[in-house]
Simulated scan of single mutants.
Amino acid sequence: MKLRKVSAAAATALVLALTATACGGDNGDDNGSDTGSGSGGGDKIKIGIKYDQPGLGLKEPDGTFSGFDVDVATYVAKELGYDPKQIEFVETKSADRENALDRGDVKFIAATYSINDERAKLVDFAGPYLLAHQDLLIKADSDISKGTDLNGKKLCSVTGSTSAQNVKESIAPKAQLKEYGTYSECIAGLQSGAVDAVTTDDSILAGFASQANYKGQFKLAGLKLSNENYGIGVKKGDTATVDKINKALEKMVSDGAWETAVKENFGPAGYKNEPAPKIGDIVK
């Protein structure tokens, strides 16, 4: 076999081409940038979730993640071109969600992130992908049966959440508001008697109530105190990503993956979910 001689000019062109190809594979954006073509578009994608919400976003003892938000985020990432192995889930607490997107810490956030006018000034939203309702989690033998029963009671929610403020401003102005860093702390407070009720979305509360170590201790009050339209938060101005995520969510509903995720994550708690909302349909 004869080998061809390569001229210096040809060799230089080859080196330049290889260099350009290598540079093209690194976009310098470590939160992940997708092409929407199924090719990945980056080495990894960082997605904000909760770590302490059973049934929605939970970091398991073995380091894996479970929950409805995790399933939605994984499905969306796949449609953006990312394999599950390319996903890096980042804990994103309620009080830091807007900042995390603004700093570029994550590409998007799927973390029980209710769409409202104030948040929409700071971030863009895809979805909604779930309609939940604010409720109360109380002890199984509690006599709290309506919102006004919270007057004079200790009410817990997490810092940065709108749930407790909604109750205090509109339903029970004499409630004693306790704000903790996580819902896990609120639930522990409810168990110990440090607080009388925990308020947030019924989907979150149902997840906690169904845990083995809490089984039979708590109950949902069954109050629909508000409508919570869960959206996927994206950095303000990134409309291209919003459009791609919306298409992914529509596909998740149409191919049955959304319904499967609901049953697998909420079924054990007997949670009665609303039908899948239409993109852009915000229930007030």
Rank of each mutant, 00 (worst) to 15 (best):
K168R: 14
K59A: 13
I282V: 12
Q86G: 01
Q86S: 00
Q211T: 07
D243V: 08
V198M: 15
T241D: 01
I45H: 01
L56W: 02
G222D: 09
L223Y: 08
K46I: 00
A77C: 03
L56T: 03
F218K: 05
L220R: 15
G63E: 03
T112Y: 11
G127R: 01
A126K: 06
G127I: 03
E264A: 04
A95G: 10
A276P: 14
G28R: 01
I138C: 01
S170A: 15
D83E: 03
K139P: 05
A269C: 05
S161N: 11
Y214C: 15
T64Q: 07
L225N: 03
P128S: 02
A164V: 12
L136W: 01
V158G: 07
D102M: 08
V123L: 11
T92H: 07
V15K: 11
A110K: 04
A9W: 07
G256A: 09
G24H: 01
N213Y: 07
M1N: 08
G237D: 06
D105K: 12
F218V: 05
S37H: 03
K146L: 08
A126L: 11
D29S: 07
P268G: 00
A11T: 11
A188F: 07
D96V: 08
S145C: 08
L225Y: 05
N151C: 12
N265A: 03
K154D: 06
Q86Y: 01
A17C: 09
L14P: 06
E88I: 09
F65H: 08
S33T: 10
G24E: 01
P268C: 00
G216D: 06
E91T: 07
K168P: 10
N31L: 12
Q53L: 15
G55W: 06
V158S: 09
K121W: 08
R119F: 02
S226C: 11
V72D: 08
K85R: 13
L14G: 06
Q211D: 11
I87N: 06
D201M: 12
N227H: 14
E179W: 08
V198I: 14
V72A: 10
P173M: 10
G147K: 03
K278T: 14
V242N: 03
A77D: 02
P173C: 08
L177W: 04
H133L: 07
N99I: 12
E169F: 12
V167E: 01
G28W: 01
P84Y: 07
G267V: 10
